[in-house]
Write a protein that binds this DNA or RNA. Structure first.
Length: 443
DNA sequence: GTTGAGCGTT
């Protein structure tokens, strides 16, 4: 075993013809070796002329470092051997902690008090915004990894500061690499790089797929059985379709100042869910050359007839799902991959609001709706750059209102036209432009 | 319950 505070060493300038067993004798005189690994090229497997070495004790590492680093040149090399803490070790990152969920009133001294019993603190900084206000987090650097680890064990989650929303967070600070990634993400967010497809392809896609299948099956609406949010919504749409087609049954009706939800006029209702809906792309309108959504294809819940597709047969549910899953997916994916030759990078949704006139306030959402369902509901009208259902922090329950932001005002207007007053269950959606923060002009 | 809180990485 190795000590918990042993140091991983980077060994450089070693001849490429030496492998682990050749190197061991060289290093063993300073102590027992815990691990020695020659670095090899990931692809070719070629010896890279360096290695990682971990002794069982910190003391051995230090001895080896002092005795060898830059001290001798191995046969065949023109530079002296390097023996130094690996990058992962002594950049400070392994003994530097990120502390979150602090009270914003807590000062450096307060934090020191909290952390000093676990080791000697080399550095303690509260993170502050430009205005000097604490961001509620800090960095604490100990003189050793072990001390830092001890602080994590003792303090992480141990208490909740007054005014903080959850318990104290104590963890190792980001490494350089992690920080770079974080920066890039922030930048991407600021530049408004957001691709709704990312969500489609991400975890939500699979979820939506199931939802859509359930919707297509139209299980017992309003009969007491639980319907998942999207299923309820999609089923509602279908009932709506039935209504406007003069078929019995729907209590979903369009209203709202004479505007009608899109999809009206789709003449045929069959039981075949569209390939797109089955794969979680329901509501993703075909985009035309002008980049505007094809409103006619929207909100048919996959019952928009496919011209040139002769099969209007009614399949039993299971069959239709399998049928679509297997045969139709490539077609849907083909469309997508044309639009995005490179798979789009998954960039976390960071941009909250769109430009003026692009942000909608939506009220009377079904209780079950989350961000994902909200986005699904509005995707047909354009590029949704964010969707947010307001949630009560205490109960985690939706407050039944939320926000959707588009990248252009036209989409927002189209969404208002179509969705304001749209009835779901006993409620009608209220869809309007979000009040600007500097709310001088009321809408 | 009616207009984007918050978990924050120098």
């Amino acid at each position: 075993m190795k000590d918990h505070d042993a140091i991983k060493l980077f060994i450089g300038q070693i001849p490429r013809n030496l492998d682990e067993k050749d190197l061991r004798p060289l290093f063993e005189e300073f102590g027992k070796i815990y691990e020695l690994t020659v670095l090899k090229d990931r692809f070719t497997g070629m010896h890279k002329g360096c290695a990682f070495l971990t002794y069982c004790t910190r003391e051995s590492s230090l001895k080896a470092q002092n005795a060898l680093h830059e001290q001798k040149t191995l046969p065949g090399m023109n530079r002296p051997i390097q023996v130094k803490p690996a990058d992962s070790e002594s950049r400070g990152e392994d003994r530097k902690l990120f502390v979150g969920m602090l009270n914003k009133q807590q000062s450096e001294d307060d934090v020191r008090c909290l952390f000093e019993s676990f080791g000697s603190i080399e550095e303690c900084t509260i993170l502050r915004g430009p205005d000097g206000n604490s961001k509620g987090c800090a960095f604490v650097k100990y003189s050793s990894h072990a001390e830092a680890q001890a602080a994590i064990s003792a303090l992480h989650g141990s208490q909740t500061m007054p005014g903080a929303s959850s318990s104290l967070v104590v963890k190792f600070a980001d490494t350089d690499k992690e920080r770079t990634i974080r920066r890039m993400q922030q930048m991407a967010g600021q530049m408004g790089i957001f691709n709704p497809m990312a969500l489609q392809f991400g975890a939500y896609g699979a979820y939506a797929q199931v939802q859509q299948q359930q919707a297509a099956l139209m299980a017992s609406v309003g009969q007491g059985g639980y319907l998942s949010p999207m299923a309820a919504f999609a089923a509602a749409q279908m009932q709506h379709m039935a209504t406007i087609n003069g078929l019995p049954g729907g209590h979903m009706t369009p209203t709202s100042g004479g505007s009608t939800p899109p999809g009206i006029g789709a003449p045929t209702v069959t039981s075949i869910p569209s390939p797109i809906s089955v794969n979680g792309f329901a509501g993703m309108p075909p985009h035309q050359a002008n980049g505007q959504p094809n409103a006619e294809a929207v909100y048919t819940n996959g019952i928009h007839p496919y011209p040139g597709k002769p099969s209007q047969t009614t399949h039993p549910p299971t069959t239709s799902i399998q049928h679509n899953t297997h045969s139709a997916y490539p077609a849907a994916y083909g469309q997508i991959s044309q639009a995005f030759p490179q798979p789009p990078p998954i960039i976390p949704q960071q941009q909250r609001e769109g430009p003026e006139g692009c942000n909608l306030f939506i009220y009377h959402l079904p209780q079950e709706f989350g961000d994902g369902e909200l986005m699904q509901m509005f995707l047909p009208f354009g590029n949704v750059i964010s969707s947010k259902v307001f949630v009560d922090r205490a109960t985690n329950q939706s407050k039944c209102f939320g926000f959707v932001s588009f990248d252009n005002p036209g989409s927002a207007q189209a969404a208002i036209q179509s969705m304001n007053g749209f009835q779901i269950g006993m409620k009608r959606l209220k869809v309007q432009l979000k009040r600007p923060k500097d709310a001088n002009r009321p809408y």
